[in-house]
Design a protein around this nucleic acid. Sequence first.
DNA 1: AGACATCCTATGATCGATCATTAGGGTGTT
DNA 2: AACACCCTAATGATCGATCATAGGATGTCT
Lengths: 171, 171
Amino acid sequence: MAAELGVSQAPVREALRELEALRLIESAPNKGARVRRLTRSDLREVYQVRAGLEETAVRLGRPRVEALRTHLGRLHEAAAAGALHDQVRHGVAFHREIVKASGNDVLLSVWESLGIEVWTHLSIRLFRMPHESAAGHEPLVEAFERDDPGVGVLLREHLLGYAPGEPEGRI
Amino acid sequence: MAAELGVSQAPVREALRELEALRLIESAPNKGARVRRLTRSDLREVYQVRAGLEETAVRLGRPRVEALRTHLGRLHEAAAAGALHDQVRHGVAFHREIVKASGNDVLLSVWESLGIEVWTHLSIRLFRMPHESAAGHEPLVEAFERDDPGVGVLLREHLLGYAPGEPEGRI
DNA sequence: AGACATCCTATGATCGATCATTAGGGTGTT
DNA sequence: AACACCCTAATGATCGATCATAGGATGTCT
């Protein structure tokens, strides 16, 4: 691959590590790396972990509703403009704000290591999952607004709602 | 450092990346890497995330009680022999079994990326935290045995019990 | 003395090459 | 035909070196 790309092995090595961390490739020792055969199950696993992390986040600290509304506004704008990429970006920013508000840096870095933005794109493009709508976030913001103790569960269910269901399809 | 150790930069680079992933060092761009000044707060953050992950795990799947008892037995033996290192090892294995039983590979790899074993040692050696006793795990196993719906909360509280409290001490 | 431009050095990334290990194919034997 | 052994080739890690960049130190000017 290094020869093919006209670069040395070092950067290829780094790139493969990153892709493996995102679980987009899998590598067997002395057998090289291959792109993974992504299944709905892979996607569901990521969403389950993500849901757990974000539920943990709201247990540790609540985000500023104001900040959430800012992201939600951008999400609305992007949706109106039909800018899918921006929708994803602002949707992710919305949830990142929640995790960041936990005040737990370890939690934030673990959440980021999941590569949420990439997986969101994959869920939309590969499995035609509905992308996170601006409307779907409204109940969440309201729950944060009234400091609802059940916001953690609400958040988890919100997220799992975007995860693929049981049927085990392959690409 | 490479010159000092008589090796090339590549392995040093790799090692520093791993240490940074474990949050044992911090590196600023173009300023190099330094060992982090570990605080009780760092440790608490790791435990909070860990607790959340393991609670998520038991929501997804329950471990075989038999396997847990095996690890617990080894933990007992190590405690009787005063083998601290083995106590930690089997204690970690006990909890890893729980995470593994979730059937979620992403969850397992995220959990492993926390470097629980290292942090457990650090909590004991740096902050004199009590190490996970064999006795403390008994209620957990019993809860799994009777398939207690509250085992998730019990597990979380069990873990947070080993996390450092508020007083912000430095080493 | 303080503000500012310039130089120096450490860092970080990349390069091209070598070396040990091992998977998988090929050969030979029973 | 089944099996054990060997051997090639690819992988992965390491090496020693170069290059661009950024931070800090130095020196100059006001």
